[in-house]
Amino acid sequence: MSLEGKLALVTGSGRGIGRAIALKLASQGVDIIVNFFRHRDSAEQTAKDIEALGVKAEVIRANVGDPAKIDEMFDMIGNKFGRLDILISNAASGVGRPVVDIDVKAWEWTMDINARALLLCAQRAAKLMEGRGGKIVSISSLGSRFVLPNYTIVGVSKAALEALTRYLAIELAPRGICVNVVAASAVETEALKFYFKEGLVKNNRQVTPAGRMVIPEDVANVVAFLCSEEAFMIRGQTIIVDGGTSVGLFTLAGK
């Protein structure tokens, strides 16, 4: 399953799931463009760890919620590398509020970063994948299909992301580009601490049939598989990584 010599952009890869994906791909010989927005130190640490694996790393700051910044990022990739093999649209943000307290600002902020960014990044990435094919994988969550407390905007943005993935998968298929999405349940990351604080998730260790919470590496393993040629016939799918949480909802209801 070697991806030797490929070039990947992983948005939001300074920390958490993005960092785990970047390191996993790097361990398979992929050069990585580490995108970050708010945490430069973490991004630079990720880049160092990638280079320690014997591949190249480039750090680019960009708010993927801002179309002009996405353009700047891809202009830089185009000028410097002239190609891209893998796009991982992982960067995410969110505002935890009950439905009645959601305002336009919070809605747009979340939708722009979590959903629109995939569209804009995929459009630019497809051009850099022209004639060579490629892989696009984004990261969703169970909130796209199940109701979690105060998770409305993020859940809706993830549902949009999953729907967009299906359209991209079909329309980009003739260009040899495979597009899929990985949806995880609560993953043990820095971001989760924020969600705990905002009351978005409760400790779900007890309600995961697999007996532990999902960790970033669980998601990264599936993403790496979707980036491999072995996954060539998987298109437009949402692959759930949740230790059985979603299919065990009723059996776990009493726990």
């Binding site: 708010r38 945490h39 430069r40 130190d41 700051r61 708010n63 943000s93 505002v95 600002k105 902020w109």
Partner: peptide, 23 residues
């Protein structure tokens, strides 16, 4: 709120051409 603060940081960064890490 937390979103206002992030948006203020981004606007200030762009106005003054600096980067303000979350840390």
């Amino acid at each position: 709120d937390s979103l206002d603060v992030v948006q203020a940081l981004v606007a200030v960064e762009e106005t003054f051409g600096i980067e303000i890490p979350d840390e």
